[in-house]
Design a protein around this nucleic acid. Structure first.
Lengths: 226, 226, 226, 226
DNA sequence: CTTTAATCGAGACGGTACGTCGCGTCTTATT
DNA sequence: AATAAGACGCGACGTACCGTCTCGATTAAAG
């Protein structure tokens, strides 16, 4: 596997990926995710992961540079699995539905996100990765590039479709627009600045779409339901 | 001061806060902030702070529970100083200006925030605290309660004034509304998901106030200052 | 204050012994002896003594230079008390009895010593002091001069009386002679090199008095019991 | 070597003695002995030994339980080396000479012991070990069993030979008899109760062999070897 | 009797060392 | 050659005491 790319993440003298033990790799992922869930990220140690995975420490250091790096891969692996399960039936790469009703579509997706944020399997590792990413730039950039941005791109696509359909003003930058409802949810969750609920995300979508400013009098009505 | 309450914030076996050395306290704050700025949060150690402050480790552990706890207090102290400097002339506790033009006021404040986020004195410690807060719930809650929420409250006040003046729809929840422009900026900065600029924050305010949805035709004009 | 004697045991600026709290002094002795008995000498700390005695640390450091110093005084005090109790009836300063039978007298005294060495009140502190004395020369010399030598002198006196009575060869040095039976007992006890018993000390006295060498043939009998 | 027994002397979680670094072991011994000689036992610290040996603290704690334990092994090693040097020529395991003249042999050996006690290489560590042994029972017992008793056994052997040759009374217990001259020397040295010299040890031997009691004139002989 | 100055209980302080944990590297034997 | 195992040098942890240094509050002698 991975023959085309010369060296996926070369450390030191580029270990021979062909001889790599898949068994160890999986055991390391499972151990890392389990430990982060059980004792928290700061108390999760490379030594602990190795012991739990029944693996030598060197086997970890041969393929990753730090525990953050391990966890990132482990979480990507977990996400890929989850995505595969979700989209297994039709093989599609996952996208935001387009029923024509932008507000409804966004609300639905955000409600699903709320559910996911509450899944204990995801909570600990993703919070840990976000934290590590704030301080460790390498992990941060990779986290954003490999996990966050691909997901945000789905919103960009949907918003662009809405622009094409005339539901969103053409001069709006979708990459910024999506932050109006995505970032508040992310911040509430990460920083515990407030509760997250369906109501909350629904409200975010409404505010983002129609603004909070008062409308000048004599105006049909905001949503103007087709 | 503090004659009635015998022990304001007792840790462990409640050291006598009355005998506390102000000299050491200040030295610890300065050392902590300096080290976080110079070597980064992860490489900042309690031992290093103590050495730099010319203080015994026990003097740190007597009053704080962890380096995150120290840094939180240090940063609060720094913020209080900065606020005191800013508002020294009129003694006011700092508030968002109210010129009557909500959009202009918000843009101005956010531009100032952008400036602050780029101030190297603040960058390292606040990013570190945010990261620590994600993973260390105690620090996280205190960070939010003592630093973040007071600042957000200023937006709430300003938005409520705008509601009273009819510029913001009365049914809007200001606590949620402010997140539309504050959280995106916070996330871009923390997670490096994109560049931050005056343009960007101006755009956030516009989108948040007037929404991103297209308006039905024959509409006077969004801001339509009446 | 204290004009005649320049300074009894002057530390730093010669504290005024006249104002000294007898109450604290006694409490410190009791605490020190109790702690050495309960947790052992190495785990006995100045801080612990102070706490147990209900005394400030400075009160200890004002009058003694180290925990060894404290314990030495405490033990001397204890010994003085014990001696006072023993010799209270006749007020005599304590001496080895002289019944005319040197062997019997020495055996009797050594049996009493064996009993004392097994008294748990004495065991821990005297072992501790001996140990401290090995390594801390100041404590060692004082221990020897104030406790050990006075006791050994009693043997010297008794042996000299025996020399006067013709039971001990006149050219024998009593100070060395006494070591033949005293030192083995001391070493067995201190270094746990063997059990100590009445039999053992009796044997020591016999060996020391009559030697271990075979006697040339044709000799009446050693003790020649009057 | 040591294939059958999996763990010769396991401490804690039984580190693998086969992988032990001989280099570190020797460096630790040298550092420990040097430090005890230079700054004294109380100021010798595990940390200091580790630093001087260029070794991690954990490497010390992995194999020994305390600084006393380290020093004991270091001193045993030193003694073994010294013994090896002394008996290197004939390969014999070292014994007290037997010229037929018991008094002369004992005096010679004790004079050698006096010399050794004055060797600065031995003075500090053996005094320290003796002191530690008084208070730390584990070290004390091992010190006695591995160092002291083997040496005393040599005297037992020599005295038994003397008994066989008729120079010592047959009912005498050699293990006790040897204490008559060994313990006084030990105590004088350890507790500084008096000077040690050739004269002194010669006198001890004379007293011990022939007793201090006066002999009745013209005497046949007590044991009267029949 | 006051006055007053030293001692007292208390404990915070700058330090040193403790014994433990985990890092990332290295070595050994096994597969 | 990669692996499981784990010893190693190292650095930091959080704790225990050291001996010094303020603090009021007794407290006993001198005024």
């Amino acid at each position: 596997m991975d023959v085309s790319t010369p060296a996926p993440q070369p450390r030191k003298q580029a270990p021979d990926a062909g001889r790599r033990s898949e068994r160890s790799r999986r055991a390391i992922f499972e151990a890392a995710l389990a430990l982060v869930g059980e004792v928290g990220y700061p108390k999760t140690t490379v030594e602990g992961i190795a012991a739990r995975a029944g693996v030598g420490k060197q086997t970890i250091y041969r393929w990753w540079s730090s525990k953050g790096d391990v966890l990132l891969d482990a979480f990507l692996d977990l996400s890929a699995q989850a995505a595969a399960e979700a989209g297994a039936t039709d093989g599609e790469p996952y996208a935001i539905p387009d029923t024509g009703d932008l507000a409804a579509d966004l609300k639905a997706v955000l409600r699903a996100t709320v559910d996911e944020l509450r899944d204990p399997r995801f909570e600990a590792p993703s919070r840990a990765l976000a934290a590590e990413g704030l301080v460790n730039e390498q992990v941060g950039r990779e986290f954003v590039a490999r996990l966050l941005e691909p997901q945000l791109q789905l919103y960009v696509d949907r918003l662009r479709a809405a622009q094409d359909g005339g539901q969103v003003r053409p001069e709006v930058d979708p990459r910024i627009a999506l932050e109006l409802f995505v970032s508040p949810l992310a911040q509430r969750w990460l920083q515990r600045t407030g509760p997250i609920s369906y109501d909350y995300t629904d409200t975010l979508v409404d505010y983002a779409l129609y603004g909070i400013a008062a409308r000048p009098p004599a105006e049909p009505s905001p949503p103007a339901r087709n």
